[in-house]
């Protein structure tokens, strides 16, 4: 039951942006270098994040990406949904009509998938970028002292 690599890298990029981008926008190049993800992949990811409204861009020589809302209002769950479209392990959890089985209305296993889905979302929706940023800074002694490895 794996999350997409893309959504995991998106969280890495956004955490990097909240740690290092509080004073000025960051370029995709900076974010890629800071996370060890390729520039091309990070570009794709930030394009998706922009489309779903989690980040915005500013133009100009010092332009780049910034969070479009306060870090305490962005949860891990929002980031996964922005990239993967949903956060459920089986699609019937969101919408039973997506199941094509003739026995779907008496499905014996759907309740299990709903419980698993809730277990995932409970954690993901309660963790915010702000909390992660503060914890990360506490572990690493501030943004200035950082190198990626």
């Amino acid at each position: 039951m794996k999350l997409s690599t893309k959504s995991r890298y998106a969280l890495e990029g956004l955490l990097y942006l909240s740690v290092h981008g509080s004073n000025q926008p960051l370029s995709v190049k900076d974010i890629a270098a800071g996370t060890g993800v390729t520039v091309a992949y990070m570009e794709q990811i930030f394009f998706s994040l922009k489309k779903s409204g989690l980040v915005s861009t500013t133009r100009g020589a010092r332009g780049g990406y910034e969070l479009s809302q306060p870090a305490e209002e962005i949860s891990v769950g929002m980031i996964i949904r922005a990239i993967d479209g949903n956060i459920v392990p089986v699609k019937c959890v969101d919408n039973l009509s997506l199941c094509t089985s003739r026995v779907r209305s008496n499905c014996v296993s759907r309740q299990v998938w709903i419980q698993v889905s809730n277990a995932i979302a409970d954690v993901a929706d309660s963790l915010t970028l702000e909390e992660l940023k503060n914890k990360y800074l506490a572990e690493n002694g501030g943004a200035e002292h950082e190198n990626i490895n």
Binding site: E12, G34, T35, L132, Y136, E146, N147, I148
Partner: peptide, 9 residues
């Protein structure tokens, strides 16, 4: 690669 940010997350 197990970068610092990845292992933190």
């Amino acid at each position: 690669d197990e970068t610092k940010i990845r292992s933190f997350l």
